[in-house]
Amino acid sequence: MKKNSLIILLFSLITTIAFAQDEAAEKDAPVYLPFESGSLIDAQTTEIPDVKTLEFVIQHKFGTIENGISDLWGLYSSANIRLGINYVPYKNIQLGVGLNKSHMTTDLNAKWTILEQTEKNTVPVAVALYGNVGIDGRPISGYSNDSVQVGYTGSVGEIKFPDRLSYFAQLIVGRKFNEHLSLQAGVSFSHYNIADLGYDHDKIGVHFNGRIKVTTQGSIIFNYDQPLKIKSISENREWTTKNDPKPNIAFGYEVSTGAHAFQIYMGTTNYILPQETMMMNASSFDNKGLSFGFVITRLWYH
């Protein structure tokens, strides 16, 4: 009986909130473009274009600046590249696919903006969920060994398709404070089905990024991703700091028009896919791990 009352109470609460939002939506409209694009350096924003919009994303990261002028601060060094296509089939739901040079990974991704911030602050923040699945496409010879063992001491077998999969899930909360300042914070969970001994399969991370609009089309942008060291979910038996992933700190400048965004930046990761950065980033300011990169997005409206 107690259970039934609880269900009725919950149901009535949900319907009340839903109706309240419907009424509010009539009077209050979502804020205009909290971010210029769905991508912000390597991160995602709560922004999703209109329904039936196709987006092409080019992400390019040069090598690190560690060698100085000998390879023109990484411009002549090997680069990491991602080509992605996103489509918006329903309002505030975006599906995408991308090809990454790093580990020859194909990623399938989805983003859902659950709540949009409104002009009159009926909804003070935007909330979005983002998730992807990465499929490592390297030949078996690309791995350090063609055998895997289940768990730390389990049976040994061959690398199979599920071993190639990695996952990233993120909750993003953002707010456009005024015409100049938009900020976002997020929490994420990354999982790899396969790892080298001494590395983790799971990682929780926190994220903080934003933009400061300085001209009509230009903004200063930044992104910070911090993988957390949590002993209870770590399998790093020796608990050393040797294999800990380093945070990604990036800052840059964005120029945007209605259908384009161009971002040029410097950041401390060589990876583009978020789960790779959260799990494996070895670059930092200490080892001159900064690299130049840019992002170009192009939208086609229906």
């Binding site: 060994n145 599920p162 790892a195 001994l197």
Partner: peptide, 15 residues
């Protein structure tokens, strides 16, 4: 299908 393949905790056998 992709989600069902999650939560594997395999290790690459060290050489």
């Amino acid at each position: 299908g992709l989600l069902a393949s999650a939560c594997k905790y395999d290790y690459i056998v060290p050489e």
